[in-house]
Design a protein around this nucleic acid. Structure first.
Length: 886
DNA sequence: CTTCTCACG
DNA sequence: ACGTACGTGAGAAGT
């Protein structure tokens, strides 16, 4: 069975260019559009398995369409040079793939594809047309489906005639009439002025075609009638321009479209030229010239010393002059990670010890005492994980002086891969093997034999050693040395302490709650089945969508890329239509509690201690916040009472102790008041007024007692919006009001808080100028998209520029408070323990006799963490469990 | 392994 | 005109 795939080259490369972030190879060639195009090709090859394939291009500037209408495609912006330079590259890439390409002077890509799809259709050959242009829908038929790009490049939506009917209520050929009426600004096709998609569809549903509309103008009312009558000629010409010409002389071309797959070596060479390294790996393409794979790998200018090569004294001597340290622990969860070895580099020797060497034998004593010696300096990589993994072996890691992972994170917190291999590559140092190469991944993961493993661990210790001076210098240049050595590194130790300590979770409380939930979930389930008239999996959005929108016929208005959206926003809008909707919302709420918080949390409780030990990741969030994993203890329910009860299970680990919690009040807005210097906002916090009420008063121009609940709610949403980097659309969406009204609120807000407006303008300008923004403690985030020509990318970067200094400074502040508080506890010899951090909240367990002291000490330390132009405020609460501490 | 949904600040 | 709020992690489905 033949299968043809016909691609509108111009349309897709444009799409790819605007959808992909800036990307260049090391010689400065822009490659983003070609990269995007390539990912789309790969997806098509995999999904469609075509026997024939063609990429069609527009040729030259003038086509037959210009003969009747010289202004066709006039007024278009010039193609950006960053894109033009990629056309020849794309054509070369297609040759490397072995994919046919075609262009014919006087015709557009549309016409070539239109003709070939007609030929395919006439022979009954299944064909997919790929484009970003809706006009292509006119080509759909029983054998021809149209894949239109939606978001990005690889996300496409397929249309056959039935789907076009469903979406527009039109046949494929009527798509031409649609454009005839609407016109198309991008092609400079006029259509009828004032007729957009809505009106055009209405007219077509009534009269069937452009000609039908023109013949029945008497039945059209008001202004619309005048417009249609005045622009009859335009409509007819527009229809003609929009019609794809399907008789291009292309007979007997089919053989040239045959696709036989690509030659890995040829494609590999092309990808190397473009530096598409991830794709080389993904397709497992051969290395250049077959061999020489290891040519770039660093040559070991050190001797790997295994246990057999070392005496205890020799090891001690080496450790005394250590330059770097690397500990390998397998597994993502450091509390369960298996230590398989470690390496210490010193001059031309790198000692590599196994787990067994660490746990017993002649070398165990020297290595353990070195690890635990706070005076023995250690420069390493991910020592937070190392500290935890070792601690479960009864070894306390001390004396960390430099962590390459933390440094790398500070230097670029948005970088997703901070592995040693990636860091080495980014710094253009001689390469080391990736973990994936050495261990494999997924089901194929396997620890290699002792010798190979030793070589790899030694290479990593050596990599750390080579990175340290570079990272140190970059931190210095970025003014982040203090942030690294005095905040993040000490914090890593505090976090490890919290994680080792863990928090006690009462399994009985969870089990009781679970039993209750189970009953209720079952009840909801049967009620939902009764209303639906059938049983189905409510947890499956797909099945739920079918029941709601097809079986029950509820109105569908929001779609995901795979089907109907059934999220809470959709369901809330559907509530008035059917009783089942409310039941589903409740079911969802309870099922979430049951699976994630009752069952999920129960699985994390250690049988021996009854505690859960989360892991705070310090190098994930782009803003400087922490994140929490295994389990995530930063998203335990609180907003709704049913869920909040989960917190009753979090209890002190010792009898008679209490849970004490303190959270910063409005920390982000206080930070904003400080960094913007807005006098009005500063004064509001100095007077300790309710900021949302104050905002409502100023924005609505009323007195305090005139602010009702709704005004305060709206003001609160505006304040949130300000912190997020406000947009009219976002605020409108959040408040469920018209965008115009939202924009009015924002304008009014900026009228009042002029300092805030100035800050927002300045920070975006600063980001454009420097390429990055910073927090008060000089934490940095780069925003490469701030200059993007793509509106979406640029807007996103602008909002990020506004938000990151605020969210990031708040993160700085609570981190300072944590380090200071830890110090206070130790210096005062208190037994109280810090257990959790939830972005603006700290949770402790405290013995009864320390409660009074802690109730004043904790807020004092939190409020004094950083001196701002406005006071910081922390509210304390306590109880017998986390629920009571509210 | 990705997608959807939903929990938190 | 474009199409969005900022930052995370986890469970269940379905490929």
């Amino acid at each position: 069975m033949d299968k043809w795939v016909l691609i509108d080259g111009n349309s897709i490369i444009y799409r790819a260019f605007f959808a992909m972030p800036q990307l260049t190879n090391s010689s400065g060639l822009h490659t983003n559009a070609v990269y995007g195009f390539t990912t789309m090709l790969l997806k098509l090859l995999e999904e469609e398995k075509p026997t024939h394939m063609l990429v069609a291009f527009d040729a030259g500037k003038v086509t037959f369409r210009h003969e009747g209408y010289a202004e066709y495609k006039g007024g278009r912006e010039k193609t950006p040079p960053e894109l033009s330079e990629q056309f020849p590259v794309l054509k070369e890439l297609l040759r490397s793939f072995g994919i046919a390409q075609y262009e014919l002077s006087g015709f557009e890509a549309d016409d070539i594809i239109g003709t070939l799809s007609r030929i395919a259709d006439e022979s009954g050959i299944e064909t997919v047309v790929v484009s970003g242009d809706k006009d292509m829908l006119q080509l759909a038929s029983d054998h021809v489906t149209i894949a239109l790009t939606r978001k990005g490049v690889t996300d496409v939506e397929r249309y056959d005639p039935a789907q076009i009917q469903e979406r527009y209520g039109l046949t494929p050929l009527q798509i031409i009439d649609l454009k005839g009426l609407m016109g198309d600004t991008s092609d400079n096709i006029p259509g009828i002025p004032g007729v957009g998609e809505k009106t055009a569809l209405k007219l077509l549903h009534e009269f069937g075609s452009v000609e039908g509309v023109l013949a029945n103008t008497s039945e059209i009312k008001g202004k619309m009638k005048e417009k249609v009558e005045a622009h009859q000629e335009d409509a007819l010409m527009s229809k003609k321009l929009a019609t794809i010409y399907r008789e291009v002389p292309l007979e007997n071309k089919a053989d040239e479209l045959v696709y036989n797959g690509y030659d890995g070596a040829v494609l590999g060479d092309m990808f190397r030229k473009l530096e598409f390294k991830s794709l080389i790996e993904r397709l497992d393409l051969p290395e250049a010239g077959g061999a020489a794979a290891d040519a770039d790998l660093a040559e070991a200018n050190y001797a790997v010393m295994a246990a057999g090569d070392l005496t205890a004294d020799a090891l001690s001597a080496l450790l005394a002059n250590s330059e770097s340290f690397y500990l390998e622990a397998i597994g993502d969860n450091p509390h369960q990670a298996k230590v398989i070895g470690l390496a210490v580099a010193s001059g031309d020797r790198i000692a590599v010890l196994s787990y067994d060497d660490l746990m017993g034998g002649k070398l165990s004593t020297p290595i353990r005492s070195w690890l635990e010696d706070a005076k023995a300096p250690k420069k390493g990589y991910d020592l937070h994980k190392a500290e935890l993994a070792l601690s479960w072996l009864g070894i306390e890691l001390r004396g960390v002086t430099f962590d390459a992972l933390l440094a790398a994170y500070l230097l670029d917190p948005t970088e997703t891969s901070q592995t040693l291999a990636a860091l080495i590559q980014r710094h253009r140092l001689a390469a080391i093997q990736t973990d994936e190469t050495v261990y494999g991944k997924g089901a194929k993961f396997q620890v290699p034999g002792a010798e190979v493993l030793a070589a790899h661990l030694a290479a990593k210790a050596d990599a750390v050693r080579r990175l340290v001076p570079l990272l140190t210098e970059e931190l210095e240049k970025g003014h982040m040395s203090k942030l690294c050595y005095e905040l993040e590194q000490p914090l890593a130790v505090v976090l490890a302490g919290m994680e080792k300590q863990g928090i006690k979770v009462n399994a009985d409380v969870l089990q009781d709650l679970g039993a209750e939930l189970e009953k209720n979930v079952a009840q909801y389930m049967s009620d939902i089945y009764a209303h639906a008239g059938m049983e189905f999996n409510i947890n499956s959005p797909r099945q739920l969508g079918e029941v709601l929108f097809e079986k029950l016929g509820l109105p569908a208005w929001k779609k995901t890329k795979t089907g109907y959206s059934t999220d809470a926003e959709v369901l809330e809008k559907l509530e008035p239509y059917h009783e089942i909707v409310k039941l589903i919302l409740h079911y969802r709420q309870l099922a979430k509690l049951q699976s994630t918080y009752v069952e999920g949390l129960l699985k994390e409780i250690r049988r021996d201690t009854g505690k859960v030990h989360t892991f705070y990741r310090q190098t994930i969030a782009a803003t400087g916040r922490l994140s929490s994993q295994f389990p995530n203890l930063q998203n335990i329910p609180i907003r709704l009472e049913e869920g909040r009860r989960i917190r009753k299970a979090f209890v002190p680990s010792e009898p008679g102790w209490h849970i004490l919690a303190a959270d910063y009040s409005q920390i982000e807005l206080r930070v904003l008041a400080h960094i913007s210097g807005d006098e009005k906002m500063k004064q509001a916090f100095i007077d300790d007024t309710d900021i949302h009420t104050k905002t409502a008063m100023d924005v609505f121009g009323v007195t305090a007692d005139q602010v009702d609940a709704n005004m305060r709610r709206q003001a609160k949403a505006v304040n949130f919006g300000i912190v997020y980097g406000i947009s009219g659309f976002g605020l409108a969406n959040n408040l469920g009001i018209a965008r115009k009204d939202a924009e009015m609120f924002i304008a009014q807000y900026f009228e009042v808080f002029q300092g805030v407006r100035a800050y927002m303008d300045n920070i975006v300008a600063q980001a454009r100028n420097d390429g990055y923004v910073t927090t008060l403690l000089e934490r940095r985030r780069y925003l490469p998209d701030i200059k993007a020509s793509n509106f979406n990318l640029r807007s996103f970067a602008e909002r990020t520029a506004m938000n990151t200094p605020i969210q990031g400074t708040a993160a700085d502040i609570i981190k300072l408070a944590m380090v200071n508080m830890d110090k206070e506890l130790r210096e005062r010899g208190l037994r109280s323990r810090m257990l959790l951090q939830v972005h603006d909240e700290l949770v402790f367990e405290v013995p009864a006799e320390e409660l009074e002291l802690m109730k004043t000490l904790l807020p004092q330390v939190m409020e004094g963490a950083l001196k701002l132009d406005v006071p910081l405020k922390a509210d304390v609460s306590y109880g017998d469990n986390w629920y009571e501490a509210k």
